[in-house]
Amino acid sequence: MKKRKWRPYAYYSSLFTFLLFFTWMFFEVVDALKKNEIAAFDMAVITEVQSWVNEGRTARMVMITDLASVLFLTAATAVIALFLIIRKRYGWALFFIFANAVGGLFNGLLKELFKRQRPDILPLIEQGGYSFPSGHSMGSFIFYGALSFMLFRLLKGKWKKMIGAAAAGCMIILVGLTRIYLGVHYPSDVIAGFSIGAAWLLFCIMMFHFSEYKWNRRLKKASS
Protein backbone atom coordinates (compact mmCIF):
# COMPACT_ATOMS: atom_id res chain seq x y z
CA MET A 1 0.00 0.00 0.00
CA LYS A 2 2.82 2.41 0.84
CA LYS A 3 4.44 1.73 -2.50
CA ARG A 4 1.25 2.67 -4.38
CA LYS A 5 0.97 5.94 -2.50
CA TRP A 6 4.66 6.76 -3.00
CA ARG A 7 4.59 6.43 -6.78
CA PRO A 8 2.00 9.16 -7.42
CA TYR A 9 3.66 11.43 -4.86
CA ALA A 10 7.08 11.05 -6.50
CA TYR A 11 5.59 11.45 -9.98
CA TYR A 12 3.67 14.65 -9.23
CA SER A 13 6.57 16.07 -7.25
CA SER A 14 8.83 15.45 -10.24
CA LEU A 15 6.39 17.20 -12.60
CA PHE A 16 6.24 20.25 -10.35
CA THR A 17 10.03 20.30 -9.87
CA PHE A 18 10.67 20.18 -13.61
CA LEU A 19 8.03 22.87 -14.16
CA LEU A 20 9.90 25.16 -11.77
CA PHE A 21 13.25 24.25 -13.33
CA PHE A 22 12.22 25.04 -16.91
CA THR A 23 10.50 28.25 -15.83
CA TRP A 24 13.68 29.28 -14.01
CA MET A 25 15.74 28.41 -17.09
CA PHE A 26 13.56 30.63 -19.29
CA PHE A 27 13.94 33.60 -16.96
CA GLU A 28 17.70 33.01 -16.76
CA VAL A 29 17.88 33.35 -20.55
CA VAL A 30 15.71 36.50 -20.37
CA ASP A 31 17.99 37.97 -17.72
CA ALA A 32 21.13 37.19 -19.75
CA LEU A 33 19.50 38.73 -22.81
CA LYS A 34 18.64 41.94 -20.98
CA LYS A 35 22.19 42.22 -19.62
CA ASN A 36 23.64 41.47 -23.07
CA GLU A 37 25.57 38.53 -21.63
CA ILE A 38 24.52 36.02 -24.26
CA ALA A 39 25.71 37.65 -27.50
CA ALA A 40 29.09 35.85 -27.55
CA PHE A 41 27.43 32.47 -26.97
CA ASP A 42 24.87 33.12 -29.74
CA MET A 43 27.52 34.14 -32.26
CA ALA A 44 29.81 31.19 -31.45
CA VAL A 45 27.01 28.65 -31.95
CA ILE A 46 25.68 30.34 -35.10
CA THR A 47 29.17 30.42 -36.62
CA GLU A 48 29.67 26.71 -35.92
CA VAL A 49 26.24 25.54 -37.10
CA GLN A 50 26.25 27.65 -40.25
CA SER A 51 29.65 26.28 -41.19
CA TRP A 52 27.74 23.10 -42.07
CA VAL A 53 25.69 24.83 -44.78
CA ASN A 54 25.45 23.14 -48.16
CA GLU A 55 22.63 22.87 -50.68
CA GLY A 56 21.58 19.29 -50.00
CA ARG A 57 21.62 19.72 -46.22
CA THR A 58 19.65 22.96 -46.48
CA ALA A 59 16.83 21.19 -48.35
CA ARG A 60 16.61 18.59 -45.57
CA MET A 61 16.68 21.26 -42.88
CA VAL A 62 13.79 23.12 -44.54
CA MET A 63 11.79 19.87 -44.67
CA ILE A 64 12.39 19.24 -40.95
CA THR A 65 11.62 22.80 -39.89
CA ASP A 66 8.32 22.66 -41.81
CA LEU A 67 7.24 19.85 -39.45
CA ALA A 68 6.98 22.50 -36.73
CA SER A 69 5.40 25.29 -38.77
CA VAL A 70 2.14 26.86 -37.64
CA LEU A 71 0.32 25.36 -40.63
CA PHE A 72 1.61 21.83 -40.03
CA LEU A 73 1.10 21.85 -36.25
CA THR A 74 -2.43 23.26 -36.60
CA ALA A 75 -3.41 20.64 -39.19
CA ALA A 76 -1.75 17.80 -37.26
CA THR A 77 -3.39 18.88 -33.99
CA ALA A 78 -6.80 18.92 -35.69
CA VAL A 79 -6.29 15.46 -37.22
CA ILE A 80 -5.06 13.90 -33.97
CA ALA A 81 -7.85 15.55 -31.95
CA LEU A 82 -10.44 14.28 -34.44
CA PHE A 83 -9.00 10.76 -34.18
CA LEU A 84 -9.20 10.94 -30.38
CA ILE A 85 -12.81 12.16 -30.53
CA ILE A 86 -13.76 9.32 -32.87
CA ARG A 87 -12.20 6.91 -30.38
CA LYS A 88 -14.22 8.66 -27.63
CA ARG A 89 -11.09 9.92 -25.89
CA TYR A 90 -12.66 13.30 -25.26
CA GLY A 91 -10.42 14.27 -22.34
CA TRP A 92 -7.30 13.52 -24.34
CA ALA A 93 -8.60 15.48 -27.34
CA LEU A 94 -9.29 18.50 -25.12
CA PHE A 95 -5.83 18.22 -23.53
CA PHE A 96 -4.11 18.07 -26.93
CA ILE A 97 -6.05 20.99 -28.40
CA PHE A 98 -5.64 23.16 -25.29
CA ALA A 99 -1.89 22.51 -24.92
CA ASN A 100 -1.13 23.33 -28.55
CA ALA A 101 -3.62 26.11 -29.27
CA VAL A 102 -3.09 28.09 -26.08
CA GLY A 103 0.64 27.38 -26.25
CA GLY A 104 0.73 29.01 -29.68
CA LEU A 105 -1.11 32.08 -28.41
CA PHE A 106 1.27 32.21 -25.44
CA ASN A 107 4.27 32.25 -27.79
CA GLY A 108 2.77 35.13 -29.78
CA LEU A 109 2.26 37.08 -26.56
CA LEU A 110 5.88 36.52 -25.50
CA LYS A 111 7.19 37.61 -28.90
CA GLU A 112 5.23 40.86 -28.66
CA LEU A 113 6.50 41.38 -25.13
CA PHE A 114 10.22 41.00 -25.96
CA LYS A 115 10.20 42.26 -29.59
CA ARG A 116 13.64 40.83 -30.37
CA GLN A 117 14.65 41.20 -34.01
CA ARG A 118 15.78 38.14 -35.93
CA PRO A 119 19.49 37.59 -36.68
CA ASP A 120 20.74 39.05 -39.96
CA ILE A 121 23.82 36.92 -40.59
CA LEU A 122 23.12 34.23 -43.19
CA PRO A 123 19.33 33.79 -43.48
CA LEU A 124 18.59 30.89 -45.84
CA ILE A 125 14.80 31.34 -45.76
CA GLU A 126 12.48 34.30 -45.27
CA GLN A 127 10.81 34.50 -41.88
CA GLY A 128 8.76 37.41 -40.58
CA GLY A 129 7.87 38.42 -37.03
CA TYR A 130 9.95 38.63 -33.90
CA SER A 131 12.59 36.16 -32.78
CA PHE A 132 12.28 35.53 -29.04
CA PRO A 133 11.33 32.92 -28.01
CA SER A 134 11.47 30.64 -31.04
CA GLY A 135 7.92 29.67 -32.00
CA HIS A 136 9.06 26.56 -33.89
CA SER A 137 11.10 25.39 -30.88
CA MET A 138 8.34 26.08 -28.38
CA GLY A 139 5.65 24.64 -30.65
CA SER A 140 7.61 21.47 -31.42
CA PHE A 141 8.29 20.84 -27.73
CA ILE A 142 4.59 21.22 -26.88
CA PHE A 143 3.27 19.23 -29.85
CA TYR A 144 5.75 16.34 -29.91
CA GLY A 145 6.03 16.33 -26.13
CA ALA A 146 2.24 16.10 -25.72
CA LEU A 147 2.13 13.38 -28.37
CA SER A 148 4.82 11.44 -26.52
CA PHE A 149 2.92 11.80 -23.23
CA MET A 150 -0.25 10.45 -24.86
CA LEU A 151 1.62 7.52 -26.41
CA PHE A 152 3.04 6.65 -22.99
CA ARG A 153 -0.43 6.61 -21.47
CA LEU A 154 -2.42 5.03 -24.29
CA LEU A 155 -0.05 2.56 -25.98
CA LYS A 156 0.59 -0.91 -24.65
CA GLY A 157 4.10 -2.26 -24.76
CA LYS A 158 7.26 -0.84 -23.25
CA TRP A 159 9.19 -0.71 -26.53
CA LYS A 160 6.44 1.15 -28.36
CA LYS A 161 6.44 3.79 -25.64
CA MET A 162 10.22 4.12 -25.64
CA ILE A 163 10.45 4.38 -29.43
CA GLY A 164 7.69 7.00 -29.48
CA ALA A 165 9.40 9.07 -26.80
CA ALA A 166 12.81 8.80 -28.48
CA ALA A 167 11.39 9.83 -31.86
CA ALA A 168 9.63 12.82 -30.28
CA GLY A 169 12.81 13.89 -28.47
CA CYS A 170 14.90 13.67 -31.65
CA MET A 171 12.31 15.66 -33.58
CA ILE A 172 12.31 18.46 -30.99
CA ILE A 173 16.11 18.75 -31.01
CA LEU A 174 16.29 18.68 -34.81
CA VAL A 175 13.70 21.44 -35.17
CA GLY A 176 15.67 23.67 -32.81
CA LEU A 177 18.86 22.97 -34.76
CA THR A 178 17.20 23.85 -38.08
CA ARG A 179 16.18 27.28 -36.79
CA ILE A 180 19.83 28.15 -36.10
CA TYR A 181 21.09 26.52 -39.30
CA LEU A 182 18.58 28.43 -41.45
CA GLY A 183 19.64 31.71 -39.84
CA VAL A 184 16.22 32.73 -38.53
CA HIS A 185 16.88 32.36 -34.79
CA TYR A 186 19.60 32.92 -32.25
CA PRO A 187 20.52 29.85 -30.16
CA SER A 188 19.17 31.70 -27.09
CA ASP A 189 15.79 31.97 -28.89
CA VAL A 190 15.76 28.20 -29.29
CA ILE A 191 16.78 27.50 -25.67
CA ALA A 192 14.11 29.91 -24.43
CA GLY A 193 11.53 28.28 -26.72
CA PHE A 194 12.38 24.82 -25.42
CA SER A 195 12.35 26.02 -21.80
CA ILE A 196 9.01 27.81 -21.83
CA GLY A 197 7.51 25.13 -24.08
CA ALA A 198 8.52 22.45 -21.57
CA ALA A 199 7.14 24.52 -18.67
CA TRP A 200 3.82 25.03 -20.46
CA LEU A 201 3.55 21.34 -21.39
CA LEU A 202 4.24 20.27 -17.81
CA PHE A 203 1.60 22.70 -16.56
CA CYS A 204 -0.92 21.23 -19.03
CA ILE A 205 -0.04 17.68 -17.97
CA MET A 206 -0.57 18.59 -14.32
CA MET A 207 -3.93 20.19 -15.13
CA PHE A 208 -4.88 17.09 -17.12
CA HIS A 209 -4.09 14.83 -14.16
CA PHE A 210 -6.05 17.10 -11.82
CA SER A 211 -9.08 17.09 -14.15
CA GLU A 212 -8.79 13.32 -14.54
CA TYR A 213 -8.74 12.92 -10.76
CA LYS A 214 -11.77 15.18 -10.29
CA TRP A 215 -13.71 13.39 -13.04
CA ASN A 216 -12.96 9.91 -11.65
CA ARG A 217 -13.94 11.06 -8.19
CA ARG A 218 -17.24 12.41 -9.51
CA LEU A 219 -17.97 9.12 -11.30
CA LYS A 220 -17.15 7.20 -8.14
CA LYS A 221 -19.61 9.31 -6.13
CA ALA A 222 -22.31 8.92 -8.78
CA SER A 223 -21.96 5.13 -8.79
CA SER A 224 -22.00 4.76 -5.00
Score class of each variant (00 low, 15 high):
residue 102 V to W: 09
residue 207 M to Q: 07
residue 56 G to T: 05
residue 80 I to S: 00
residue 122 L to Q: 13
residue 106 F to Q: 15
residue 126 E to Q: 11
residue 101 A to I: 14
residue 68 A to T: 01
residue 62 V to E: 08
residue 169 G to K: 06
residue 86 I to R: 09
residue 189 D to Y: 09
residue 51 S to R: 12
residue 1 M to K: 11
residue 118 R to D: 04
residue 205 I to G: 01
residue 130 Y to M: 10
residue 49 V to E: 03
residue 120 D to Q: 14
residue 20 L to V: 13
residue 218 R to S: 10
residue 210 F to T: 10
residue 45 V to F: 10
residue 6 W to L: 14
residue 82 L to V: 13
residue 184 V to E: 02
residue 10 A to M: 12
residue 221 K to D: 09
residue 73 L to M: 12
residue 65 T to G: 00
residue 219 L to F: 07
residue 223 S to P: 00
residue 129 G to E: 06
residue 105 L to M: 11
residue 164 G to I: 01
residue 149 F to S: 04
residue 69 S to E: 01
residue 56 G to Q: 02
residue 52 W to V: 01
residue 185 H to G: 00
residue 219 L to D: 03
residue 73 L to C: 08
residue 214 K to F: 07
residue 179 R to P: 01
residue 93 A to W: 09
residue 9 Y to T: 11
residue 85 I to H: 05
residue 5 K to T: 09
residue 109 L to R: 10
residue 181 Y to A: 07
residue 86 I to T: 04
residue 33 L to R: 13
residue 1 M to I: 12
residue 36 N to K: 14
residue 144 Y to S: 08
residue 103 G to T: 04
residue 14 S to D: 03
residue 143 F to T: 07
residue 192 A to E: 06
residue 189 D to M: 05
residue 197 G to F: 09
residue 105 L to Q: 12
residue 26 F to R: 05
residue 112 E to Y: 09
residue 131 S to F: 02
residue 204 C to L: 03
residue 191 I to S: 05
residue 215 W to M: 14
residue 70 V to E: 09
residue 190 V to I: 08
residue 155 L to M: 13
residue 100 N to K: 11
residue 44 A to I: 00
residue 2 K to E: 12
residue 41 F to V: 08
residue 199 A to W: 08
residue 148 S to C: 12
residue 103 G to R: 04
residue 17 T to P: 00
residue 112 E to H: 10
residue 90 Y to D: 04
residue 187 P to L: 04
residue 56 G to C: 02
residue 52 W to E: 03
residue 27 F to L: 08
residue 14 S to N: 03
residue 67 L to C: 01
residue 176 G to H: 03
residue 177 L to Q: 09
residue 84 L to G: 05
residue 118 R to Q: 02
residue 161 K to V: 05
residue 94 L to A: 15
residue 11 Y to H: 09
residue 6 W to H: 10
residue 25 M to W: 14
residue 195 S to K: 05
residue 15 L to H: 05
residue 90 Y to W: 15
